[in-house]
């Protein structure tokens, strides 16, 4: 029991991350807006469609703003229809003509929600008599009011996949690292046990790699439109899995055990740096749809906020520990089988 604390920790972390990752709600956000009738020199009326919002319950403190780089314009009237819909009226000054405006909503209970590039102003919308005014946001910026995940345009609820997709890759890398460690050891000790450890950790690592590709494909289907989007990272992940399939094929091709241990250990050590190049060097040279590549900001600054970190880091650690646990189990089963056969 005392020795197995890390297995219990891993299992608990995975259970925590799975439940928290699925159950915790998204922050309120603005899904889209619809314009009312466009009459020149009249106030602009838009219907705001919210997600996870409580417009009606928060009616008193609900405020909407339109914003571009320099100016902020407060709505003249806000009328919630129900919790998801609100009618908002703006008096657009002529100075806003031809600019692209972001819509920002604030309320006392829900904090700030926004829709970027919500309104592109044309001639019909502006009110010539209206002069430019500078309003200021009345609510403190961006402090979420309760434990929740950010609402992101085009990610929506799939943002939770971060807690499942990314930890798979971390677990895979750690398991392949373990396997290389035991392969190096095999070369110096010539022990069958070390070889068995190396191959079992590759087996588990390959399963995690496949899970990573599958979760990634589901995510890609939703956000990029195609399960296989020919993104560099997708392709390279598939190729690095091929490397390890080749390793397993090589093992099957050799019958003699000592020889198999040695040769496959050598191939494993030869393949590992190639996998590192594939997964960590090459994607940085070309454009990728993944965050953190091709000039996109890395995901720490991009969509990991403090609440997501509280689930994401435990998820990574938990899946790594569970991966190692599965590998030790497989190794022990194989050892028992071998001893039985003797």
């Amino acid at each position: 029991m005392y020795k197995n604390w890390w297995k219990i920790l891993g299992a608990l972390l995975v259970v925590y991350a799975t439940i928290a990752g699925i159950a915790i709600p998204l922050r309120p956000g603005i899904e889209n807006i619809a314009y009312g009738k466009l009459i020149p020199n009249q106030p602009l009326e838009v219907t705001v469609n919210g997600y996870n919002t409580l417009f009606a319950d928060d009616a008193k403190s609900l405020e909407f703003y339109l914003q571009d780089e320099t100016q902020l314009l407060k709505a003249v009237a806000v009328q919630p229809l129900n919790n998801q819909l609100a009618k908002v009226t703006f008096n657009l000054p002529a100075a806003f003509h031809n600019s692209t405006l972001h819509l920002i909503g604030t309320s006392a209970n829900e904090g700030v929600m926004s829709l970027s590039e919500a309104v592109i102003v044309d001639q019909e919308m502006v009110n010539r008599d209206q002069v430019l005014r500078k309003d200021e946001l009345s609510i403190e910026q961006d402090k979420p009011k309760h434990f929740s995940f950010p609402y992101k345009q085009n990610l929506y609820e799939t943002i939770r996949n971060l807690f499942f997709h990314v930890p798979m890759w971390f677990a895979m890398i750690v398991l392949f690292g373990v396997s290389v460690f035991y392969s190096v050891k095999t070369l110096s000790t010539n022990s069958e046990i070390d070889d068995m450890k190396a191959v079992q950790s590759v087996n588990v690592g390959v399963v995690f790699g496949i899970l990573g590709i599958v979760t990634g494909a589901i995510w890609a289907k939703f956000t990029w439109g195609q399960a296989w989007s020919f993104d560099v990272k997708q392709n390279f992940a598939a190729i690095s899995l091929l490397l390890y399939f080749a390793y397993l094929v090589l093992r099957n091709a050799i019958d003699e055990e000592q020889k198999r241990a040695k040769i496959s250990a050598i191939y494993n050590i030869f393949a590992f740096p190639m996998m590192v190049v594939l997964l960590f060097v090459l994607p940085r040279l070309s454009d990728s749809l993944h965050p953190g590549n091709g000039g996109n900001p890395g995901f720490n600054s991009y969509d990991l906020d403090s609440h997501m970190r509280l689930v994401f880091y435990p998820a990574c650690l938990g899946w790594i520990l569970v991966g190692c646990w599965i590998y030790t189990l497989l190794f022990r089963v194989r050892l028992l089988e071998k001893n039985n056969n003797l």
Binding site: S240, L242, A246, V249, V277
Partner: peptide, 10 residues
């Protein structure tokens, strides 16, 4: 072929 193709693709 099996061993070298994945290595040489990058």
């Amino acid at each position: 072929a099996v061993l070298s193709f994945p290595l040489v693709i990058p």
